[in-house]
Design a protein around this nucleic acid. Structure first.
Length: 420
DNA sequence: TCTGGGGTCCTAGGACCC
DNA sequence: TCTGGGGTCCTAGGACCC
């Protein structure tokens, strides 16, 4: 058996944890640049606001006072997430953090009849210590634990914990679950399955195994087996991320080459910082540019280019230099750019790089490493104390819309004073 | 007027080899 | 109408997740 702990309406709950007056009111949290709705409270879900709705479509409700809006505040959410995770970690034999607001809980060695009460106690503790509401689903496979979690969230009677531990409960739960709600069935497959007469998870569960493999491949078959109670989604502990991406949409469209290069240099610098934080280095630096795909009246251009290096890098100078080279190769005059990003991949352990650098200037590398280390120390507070000349003047967040942001309650002393 | 960001895995097809 | 048979590796794109 395995359990899935999932924070309810996580970003909204984080906002409410520090602004209790938002409790009971319809609240939405927006994506970067105040673009789309990415989190909704139960009240705003009940109003029919869909995930991914462009903010301008619901702005009127905000102006009328019928809806509360917040820009996203990832510093706050990341901080609360790690508090929730550490409580889960101390309560269960092992946890596998799956996303910022979800973790699979291993139950090895626990007496199964005690697991529901342990889960309830942990939920109460998390609520008391962090203010975040959590639900837990318990089942024989991860996919079924997700199903159980949905029920725990949806029906108050479960008091936050739902267990699927026999065939009767399993089949009943699947019969009540629309196929689109199954983990692993996305927006492409769901309409097809429905058109083939399988609107519920139980219909899919009852389909023929070889038919599932033929039509949906190995991934579809894994989901099918999981619904039958056969664990088929292996948990590989991810040692090292395989790619790291930093990208943003801009508040305004950019045409100027130099301005665009400053932004790309910023994104590359953030990527290099993320690499160093994980003790990684990358062989490949990719840059992509996007024009505004919603402006059909304007020319469209979505180029990308990869710089492949002979030696993996993680210093700010080297990553930025490679990104700018790639950027210069794809920039075209006359387009209005709305978004850009830097992705680094072919990632290796930075420590393993040392000593195999034949034909490479070790002194230069050591200098770069030393400079990066100093930059990291100086930038540890606000991230922008020191930067390369090719990066932008001003704060990197300038030019990104964030008009409804709450305070940095967990990380800024001024905000902590304000709250108290 | 305004429309997010960051990941993973799988597969088909092309390039290349003998 | 005819135009082999088998491999491997790489990559772009699709599909999925939060």
């Amino acid at each position: 058996m395995i359990a899935l702990a999932d924070c309810n309406n996580f970003f909204v709950s984080c906002e409410r944890a520090f602004q209790p007056q938002l409790e009971g009111r319809p609240v939405v949290v927006l994506s970067n640049n105040d673009g789309c709705v990415v989190a909704r409270s139960n009240e705003s879900k009940a109003m029919g606001i869909k995930m991914g709705t462009p903010f301008f479509q619901v702005k009127e409700l905000v102006d009328k006072g019928a809806l509360v809006v917040r820009s996203s505040n990832y510093t706050l959410y990341g901080d609360l997430s790690s508090r929730v995770m550490s409580i889960l970690e101390s309560a269960f034999p092992g946890i596998e953090m799956y996303s910022i607001d979800e973790a699979f809980l291993h139950l090895d060695g626990l007496d199964m009849k005690n697991v529901p009460s342990l889960s309830r106690d942990t939920i109460l503790k998390i609520r008391r210590w962090t203010g975040i509401p959590v639900s837990i689903g318990i089942a024989p496979t991860k996919t079924l634990a997700k199903v159980a979690n949905h029920f725990a969230k949806r029906y108050a009677g479960y008091k936050g914990v739902c267990t699927i531990d026999n065939d009767e409960k399993r089949l009943k739960a699947l019969s009540l679950t629309p196929i689109d709600d199954i983990w692993g069935i996305g927006w492409r497959m769901a309409p097809k399955l429905k058109s083939w007469g399988m609107p519920t998870a139980l219909d899919f569960h009852n389909a023929d195994e070889s038919w599932v493999y033929r039509t949906m491949g190995i991934t579809g078959l894994r989901t099918w087996k999981e619904l039958h109670g056969v664990p088929s989604i292996v948990d590989e502990p991810v040692e090292r991320r395989k790619s790291i991406c930093t990208s943003r949409s801009f508040a305004d469209m950019i045409t100027d080459k130099e301005e665009l290069e400053h932004r790309v240099a910023d994104f590359a610098a953030i990527c290099s910082r993320k690499l160093r934080d994980e003790g990684s280095a990358a062989y490949c630096i990719n840059v992509f540019l996007h024009t505004n795909r919603f402006r059909e009246d304007l020319g469209q251009y979505f180029p990308n280019a990869t710089e492949k290096l002979t030696v993996p890098v993680n210093s700010t100078q080297e990553v930025v230099a490679a990104a700018l080279k790639a950027c210069r190769g794809i920039y075209r005059e006359g387009f209005k750019y709305k978004r850009a990003g830097v992705t680094v991949f072919d990632i290796v352990d930075a420590n393993a790089v040392q000593g195999v650098l034949f034909g490479y200037d070790i002194d230069t590398r050591d200098k770069h490493d030393a400079i990066s280390a100093v930059m990291d120390r100086m930038n540890s507070k606000d991230n922008q104390t020191i930067r390369l000349a090719s990066q932008r003047r001003g704060h990197y967040a300038d030019g990104i819309r964030r008009e409804h942001c709450s305070g940095l309650y967990t990380t800024s002393i001024d905000d902590i004073i304000k709250v108290h």
